[in-house]
Amino acid sequence: MKTLLNLIWFIFGGFVLALGYYLAGIVCCALIITIPWGIASFRIGSYALWPFGRTIVDRGGRVGAFSTLGNVIWLLVAGIWIAIGHVATAITMAMTIVGIPLAIANLKLIPVSLMPLGKEIVPTDRLLAGYGR
């Protein structure tokens, strides 16, 4: 089922969404000082390409002051606008019954788009097997 949902997601928005995150990653990496956000954009882009069967978890104690500061800067500069875009897209997708799972996946992208540093994207079966215990 997750493969079918990923294919539908890919066709109806995932590809374009991932391209946007990849483009932002390229720009951030080209500016040198914003490389951490570029790496985070690539990570979010891969999640935006195939969201079903994966989830976002906090890295826990491995997050430092620089990640927190970076998240605050990201939130103010880009995160809030990206989150608004995800909410608007989710509302549009939820207008059909087939689009409801896609809307939920779009809403799952909001936490990582708001605060991307200090997050990890893991397969859901790895999470169920005891990741983070």
Rank of each mutant, 00 (worst) to 15 (best):
C29P: 04
R62Q: 11
I100G: 11
W50I: 08
G45Y: 00
G85R: 11
A105W: 01
A103S: 09
V72R: 07
A40S: 03
L31C: 03
G85S: 13
C29T: 01
I39C: 10
I84Q: 11
A30R: 06
F66A: 14
G118R: 02
W74Y: 07
A83P: 10
W37L: 00
G70R: 00
A30Y: 06
I32C: 00
I35E: 09
P36D: 02
L102T: 06
I33P: 02
A48M: 06
G64S: 00
R62T: 12
I73M: 02
I97H: 11
F66Y: 13
I73P: 02
G85A: 09
L102M: 15
F42C: 00
R62Y: 12
V72A: 15
T89A: 15
S46D: 15
F66H: 05
A90T: 10
L117N: 05
F42E: 02
A30K: 07
W81A: 15
I104N: 10
V98R: 10
V122W: 07
L107C: 15
A88P: 13
M93R: 08
R59F: 11
E120G: 08
F52D: 01
P51S: 04
G70N: 03
N106F: 07
F52S: 01
W50C: 11
Y47K: 03
G85C: 13
I73C: 03
S46H: 15
I100P: 08
G60N: 01
G53T: 05
A65D: 11
E120F: 06
I56C: 14
A30M: 08
E120H: 09
A94Q: 07
G99C: 04
V122P: 03
A48L: 00
P101I: 03
D58I: 13
V63Y: 02
I100D: 09
I84E: 09
L109H: 08
E120I: 10
I84G: 13
R54I: 05
A94E: 03
G61V: 15
V63L: 13
A94Y: 05
V72G: 04
H86Y: 14
I104G: 07
P51R: 04
A103V: 09
C28V: 01
K108D: 03
G64F: 02
S67V: 09
A105D: 00
T96M: 10
V98C: 12
F66C: 12
S41N: 03
T89G: 15
A90G: 12
P101A: 06
I56V: 15
I44S: 04
L31M: 09
C29V: 00
P111L: 05
I97L: 14
I44T: 05
C28E: 01
S46C: 14
T96R: 04
